[in-house]
Structures are given as C-alpha cells and as structure tokens.
Design a binder for these strands. Structure first.
Lengths: 197, 197
DNA sequence: TGTTTTGTTGAGCAGTCGTTCAACAAAGGG
DNA sequence: CCCTTTGTTGAACGACTGCTCAACAAAACA
C-alpha cells in the first residue's frame, strides 16, 4: 500500500484545537499550526485540504471529545442532578490561573459569521449537544423531585444554554473566577425555580 | 492654521464601527475601511495612527453612542422599570431580518484575548456602562415596589450582564428572534424573583 | 498675495498570508 | 529484489496585509 502517517490523529487534532481555541480562526496562521503539530504544510494540506478543513476537523474533535465528555461527566453522571449542573458551569472557569481560552464553540459562534460560515455546522452541532445534555439532566431532576415541573424542560434548557454562552464570554474576557462563581451560584437556582408568568 | 478635514468624525466612526461589528477586527482590512469611509490610507493613518487606533476610536464611539443611548432609552427612561429591562433585551434582536451583527462589545470581548489586548479597556468600559444601567434600573424597580429586595442589586446586575452576553452570542450566531424572545421572556423574570438560597 | 500650515492622495514597500509541488523517503506487494 | 503507493519535505508562489511618504491641494495667516 505505501507509507503510513508518522503522526497520531487524535493527538494532532488536540494540538490544533488548542491553538484555534486560544487565537481564533483568523488569528491562527498555518505557520502556527506547523509549529503546534510539528508537521510541514504539505502534510497538513494532504490530510485536510486547507486551513478551513483543519479547523472543521478540530471543531468536530472538540465536540466529540471535550464537549461531549464534559456533558457526560457533569450532566449525565453526577448526582444529584442539580449539583452536576452547577459543577458543569464551574468547570469552565475553575482551571489553572493562566489566561482561560474559553470555549471553542462560543468563540467560533461569534467569529463564524464574519467569514463564509466556516464552522457553522460544527457550532450548531456542539450547541445542540450541550442543550440536549441540559434537557436530560432537567428531566432527571424533575423525576427525582428536585425540580418542579412548572416550566417545560425545553424552555429551561434553552435558557441555560444562553446563560452558559454568556458565562463563557466573561470567562474568555478574563473575569475573575470568584466573580463568576458568585454569578453562577445564584443565577442557576434562579433560572430553575421560576414558574411561568 | 491650514486645511480642515473634509469629513465629519462621528459619521466616519459610524461607518468604521459598522464594518468592525460585522467582520470583527481581524477580518477587517484597511482596504475595507477605505471603501467604507471613502478616505485613502494616508488620511486614516494621519488621523488615527494605525488600524488599532481606528478600532479603539470606533469602540469608544460605540460605547458613547450606541450602548449609552440604548441604556438611557430602555434602562433609565422606560416605565415601569421591568418593562424597560425587557425591551432592552428584545431590542438586540427585533431589528430587520438581515444577518444581525450582534454587539461590538460582545464580539470584541471574545476576539480581544487573541491579540495583545486590543480594545480590552474599551470593552471593560462598555460592559461597566451596561452593568451600571442594570443597577440603576433594579434600584428603581425595588423603590417602585416591583421587585423584592431579597437579593443585592450588584449581584442581580452581574447575572443580568452574563445573561445579556449569552443572548448576544446567540443573536450573532443567527438564532431566530422568536426563539430568543421565548428565552428572554421567561428567563428575565426568573433571574429577578429568586431569593438567596 | 505670498507664505505657512495642514489635509489628501495613491503608488508602492516590506512582510505575511494560505497554498502548491517537484523531489525525496519509507513502507507493502510482487 | 524492484515496483508501486503513499507520506513527507520545504522552497517558493502570487495575493494580500498593514502601513509609509513624497508630491500635491486647499485653507488660514501675514
């Protein structure tokens, strides 16, 4: 058949993902990606076609690995459900003290409209992944009796997604974790206990 | 003294602002700005030093004109206060049906960390402008008896700012206005009626 | 009316961008 | 072993980037 790649795809995409997450699509040059991956442009272009292809692959990897994993850990596997919801939010800003790059989905949702829809589908898929996680968690909470069924789950999940995006904007901008913790700790119960009006 | 500028600054900054808002800092070329303003590069650089200076000026103009004006109209001059809060949020997505460029502050908050703090101060000032508007409105609502004083105003204002940023991410990504209206209509009362837990 | 001052012009610079490709290296099939 | 297939290399390309500046134009002074 011929020679096989000298690199490992998941690992490569993890490096690429990290650069895009920190610098965004526009500010990331192919030279940056060469440095991050240790590969030369010919190899990258042979495997992914162009910079946009590499970004699309990295975004898909972000969804399947980073986002889906966090949804599973906090929204699906933490008890009680409402505690998992809280740790899901807190996990976005309680990491080390260096500059937090925020969420690749949020960053791309803001940047994508500037270019011709680069990554639009990936962002839509990622947001739906998270929103679906919210819906499953809310159903569990209602079943467990921790949450009144006064408001439809779909409605609550949509509100949580919006609030989540807002928190991630502040995370990326550099808002101190202590301040974010205060916001999340109070707003989360508030968003859940309201009856329709 | 010598010749005077042939252009009018507020109008020029309005054009520049529109381009940056739609395309972001990185995706906007100096040629784009020439086209938008009708000026040639020499004039732009004489007046603003470089692309970053032009961006800083446009962001300041956005704060002083667009943001401050909306804060005044909805948060300070609409009665009853809680109705003003609602229209403040709705006004971000009820405009025409073309692609909504979102908020220059939100977009810049996400893009800024990628470059060396371009516009960081302007974003911080703009966010504070909005948060202060929330605080004044909440105080008015408490005084009018429309809102229980169970939660400190500062706390509520910070939560509203976070939620506001999230709505603007979804606005920019292209979420349908009807969906955003549903989110805002229910989440806003929810964020305000919660007692501390 | 000179003279000075300041805004305007636009061709063009040096650098970076995303991308290509001919030459080469390594692996499997025969 | 040779041959085919496929991955790797990195110099180099044209396009575009932010930006400069010498020449020019017009307004305010004297």
């Amino acid at each position: 058949m011929g020679r096989r790649p000298t690199w490992n795809e998941p690992e490569l995409l993890r490096s690429v993902m990290a650069v895009f997450r920190r610098k965004g699509f526009a500010h990331t040059s192919v030279r940056d990606l060469e440095e991050a991956t240790g590969l030369h442009p010919g190899s990258l272009y042979k495997a992914y076609g162009n910079k946009e292809g590499l970004f699309t692959a990295a975004l898909a990897a972000y969804n399947e690995q980073v986002a889906a994993r966090r949804v599973r850990t906090h929204l699906d596997e933490t008890e009680p459900p409402l505690r998992g919801l809280h740790t899901f939010f807190v996990s976005t800003f309680d990491s080390g003290e260096e500059a937090n790059p925020g969420c690749l989905l949020t960053n791309t949702a803001v940047e994508a409209p500037a270019l011709a829809g680069v990554g639009r589908d990936g962002v839509a898929a990622g947001l739906e992944l998270i929103e679906a996680g919210f819906r499953r968690l809310l159903e569990r909470a209602v079943t467990a009796g921790d949450l009144a069924a006064s408001t439809p789950t779909d409605q609550r999940a949509a509100e949580l997604l919006a609030f989540y995006q807002g928190v991630l904007v502040l995370v990326r901008f550099g808002t101190p974790p202590a301040r974010l913790a205060g916001i999340v700790a109070h707003a989360l119960p508030a968003l859940l206990t309201q009856e329709a009006h």
